[in-house]
């Protein structure tokens, strides 16, 4: 029981009761009490009657300064003397609302904290940018030609197997490629032509890497036929489909073709005497 005695101070005694009618009543509280008129109320004025105050018709206990004045009930009094119920819902009132302590969030030194924050944010952006760049480049790499296509994309030709003044046609990426070993007279002829007045003006020097080797795609620039070698009015190629004439440098000289025969990418492997197309 000593334990109960200690507990006494903690448990608040009930101050509000519910009448058997169900109406809450607080006979010892003056529910009609109002705050005194306050010059600081900023024009809000006096509030209306409280909605939770007991209406007068319910009756109850009325007190005067001299003591109990009257005690009346409109409803039946409790059937048993023990059946009154008290409500106890009041919340403990605190002097000030509890605000959590955030002081540990504060930095000790504003300057270094600012620099550190910027540094971390900047590092975050830096690493993100680097990762994004790698991601994008790796993705773009998947769009380039795959290794097996690249492996087939080059054709090697033994130059020694082509005698002077002969044409060789090789297949490269499904297209014919003309390789001509030109004689010196053919080279002279190609160089002396007045190329400035041609339909697609190109000098022979622009079209070959070595004067004796002419390498070009064997596809007529008109509608894609394959021209015939060593024929035509200019000693070069002749397209049988619509009669385009190409000279010994593969430049269009006559007929409907709009452009000279195309030059593929190629290079010479002098060490092994090979021509690499692609």
């Amino acid at each position: 029981m000593a334990f109960n005695g200690l507990k006494k101070a903690v448990t608040l005694s009930p101050c509000v009761r519910t009448l058997p009618s169900g109406v809450p009543a607080a006979p010892l509280l003056n529910l009609a009490a109002r705050a005194p008129a306050d010059p600081h109320d900023h024009g809000h004025g006096v509030a209306g009657p409280r909605s939770d105050s007991t209406p007068r018709w319910v009756g109850g206990v009325s007190r005067t300064a001299s003591g109990l004045a009257s005690k009346s009930y409109v409803t039946l009094s409790p059937t048993t003397p023990l059946s009154a119920r008290f409500l106890h819902t009041s919340v403990a009132v605190k002097d000030a609302p509890q605000v959590p302590d955030f002081s540990h969030y504060r930095a000790n030194d504003n300057d270094s904290n600012r620099a550190f924050s910027y540094f971390m944010v900047g590092t975050f952006g830096l690493v993100s940018a680097s990762v994004a760049k790698s991601t994008v480049t790796e993705f773009l790499k998947t769009m380039s030609a795959s290794a097996d296509v690249l492996a087939l994309a080059k054709v090697e030709i033994e130059l020694a197997s082509i005698p002077e003044g002969k044409n060789v046609i090789v297949k490269w990426r499904g297209k014919p490629v003309f390789v001509r070993h030109r004689t010196q007279s053919e080279v002279d002829e190609a160089r002396e032509t007045k190329w400035e007045s041609l339909r697609d003006p190109e000098s022979d020097e622009q079209r070959v890497k070595k004067p004796e080797w002419l390498v070009m795609l064997g596809i007529c620039t008109h509608l894609g036929c394959v021209p015939i070698g060593e024929s035509g009015d200019f000693g070069g190629w002749f397209c049988p489909c619509h009669g385009s004439h190409y000279d010994i440098s593969g430049r269009v000289r006559k007929g409907p073709a709009p452009l000279n025969l195309e030059i593929p990418a190629y290079e010479f492997n002098d060490a092994e005497g090979k021509l690499v197309i692609g």
Binding site: R114, A115, Y118, F119, G122, G125, L126, V127, A129, S130, K133, S134
Partner: peptide, 20 residues
């Protein structure tokens, strides 16, 4: 590095390149 945003952003991108 941090006072002007242009320098900050420039540093970040240049740094991203170098870091990569």
């Amino acid at each position: 590095f941090f006072r002007r945003n242009s320098i900050f952003v420039g540093t970040v991108f240049a740094g991203a390149f170098a870091f990569g």
